[in-house]
Design a binder for these strands. Sequence first.
RNA 1: GGCCCAUUGGUGAAGCGGUUAACACAUAGCCCUCUCAAGGCUACAUACAUGGGUUCAAAUCCCAUAUGGGUCACCA
Length: 549
Amino acid sequence: MDYQKLANLMFPNIDKNIEYYEKKYPKRDLPDGAVVSRFAPSPTGFVHMGSLRTAFIAKKISTDTKGVFYLRIDDTDEKRSVKNGIQGIIEDFKNFNFEIDEGRISETEEKGNYGPYLQSKRKEIYQTFAKYLVENNLAYPCFATEDDLVEIRKNQEAKKERLGYYGRYAKSRNLSFSEIEKKIQNNEKFVLRLKSPGDFNKKIVCPDLVKGKIEFPENDLDIVLLKSDGVPTYHFAHLVDDYLMRTTHILRGDEWLSSLPIHIQLFQIFEFPIPKYCHVAPVNKKDGESIRKLSKRKDPEAALSFYHEKGIPVHAVYLYLMTTANSNFEGWLAQNKNLGLEDFKFDFKKMSASGSLFDLDKLLNISKNYISKLSASEVYHNVLNWSDAYDKEFNELLKKYPDYSIKIFNIERKQKKPRKDFSAWSEVKDNMFYMYDELFNYKKIDFGLVNKAEKYKDIINLYIQNYFNINDDKDTWFRKIKELAIEVGYAQEMNLYKENPEKYLGNIADISNILRVSLTSKTTTPDLYEIMKLLGKERIQERFTKICG
RNA sequence: GGCCCAUUGGUGAAGCGGUUAACACAUAGCCCUCUCAAGGCUACAUACAUGGGUUCAAAUCCCAUAUGGGUCACCA
């Protein structure tokens, strides 16, 4: 058969060749060892936590090696695409400060010299590569209908044979030119299938940076390369795009592991350099007794918006992702307290090959520690940003009292071991609302929460009259509370009380708590002295007065 | 069903032929303390899936089984 003629019949409008594209997208001029990696999601509208993890690792090794990380949108399947799907991904990235070196940057724009980065705009490129295969008798048109394929499968199932389009089941392999010509002239739909050179009885060793060397049978399936609408399948697009975009490392979920023989075969057929593959295990979730992959549909924590909404700092999420990605990261960080994520070298050898459960508690713990190290001003700006999207009322107050708010966040922060009150910005308001008159409600005060608080009015009155002075230093302030305790028959020290509880009506902690609850409506707050200093004389007196009537 | 991957305490995980089998999170208790958050100390946890080998010696090497997961589309 004249394969050139066949190729022209199938792709009459393709006039370029592979060399053209090789010249258009030349080898990248990068330092030795530079990693070119990418994230290639379908435009489903948002990024999955597991995807972010994979993309984060890819980007990390690219920047570590002074390489390139790019974003390519895999929109070859319309059924999967969602309206504004690209925008959703880009917004998630923006919210997570996830910057790309090149690729798609909005619904309409992109940057970089290796585009288009939208697969739907690369049809001609794919067809050029497809035409090459036909010209060289490496691929052929297949006219089998869906029914034909069902028939084949039934047959194979009945005979307990291996499923798929291969060997003697690949009937379209043997069509003559005139048969093909006739069908095409009749406008019969066809797909392009690989004429697989593989032998199922032979083995191929596939190296993988996280799973190690895996032995598979060679691929002998005549897989579909181009669908009947001329759009490539993932396998073919992967070959063409990652070759032309000069990708060196393919990071993807390990559900792709079993198609590795196909991909390696494809690269070999074209004699293109085979990229390094890194199949990343999934992030899982316990669902009753069974364990399954974190699911966009079932698990809110699968979506990045979940973390954004909670106000978990982006950097904390990355710290957590790195602790799950490289087992030595946590220890390294503990040893190198003055260094950060950027200074850590990612290593595939330290990556677990098996999936793990997503641990929100651990994330929150990391986040709590991270926040404790921020400055009051940083905290303020973060809370401001967060509340702008999720709590307008609080946002207004923060904007109204910026300096005052920063002072609040500074309570017990500038010390060697700062407080660790919150692990997410959404927790701030509940912790601090009483510092704002607009949010404080004295009617919610419940002295039932305080031990031995029966005579709280007397105690508060005594305090205002004889002990309260806003200008006292902390020692004096505390000494006076002790004196008050003695005056009303409470123990001025815990030890004394513990030794002889029956001798006292209560203890010093009870006194403090009566004051604390009066001023904050909470039994748990940061340093009461600091709080009173910030509240100031008038507001303190006002709050006390309201309680005592 | 075929092919492939995985399996260390509640969770993540170290371990690479000889260890009292690290560490972190979670949980509990004690200490500290004006409350809390921390911090310090301690505890907890029946932790090496099971069964066979190899070896003086196995969580570590080999084989089988079990369990979990993936994949076998004109989906990615």
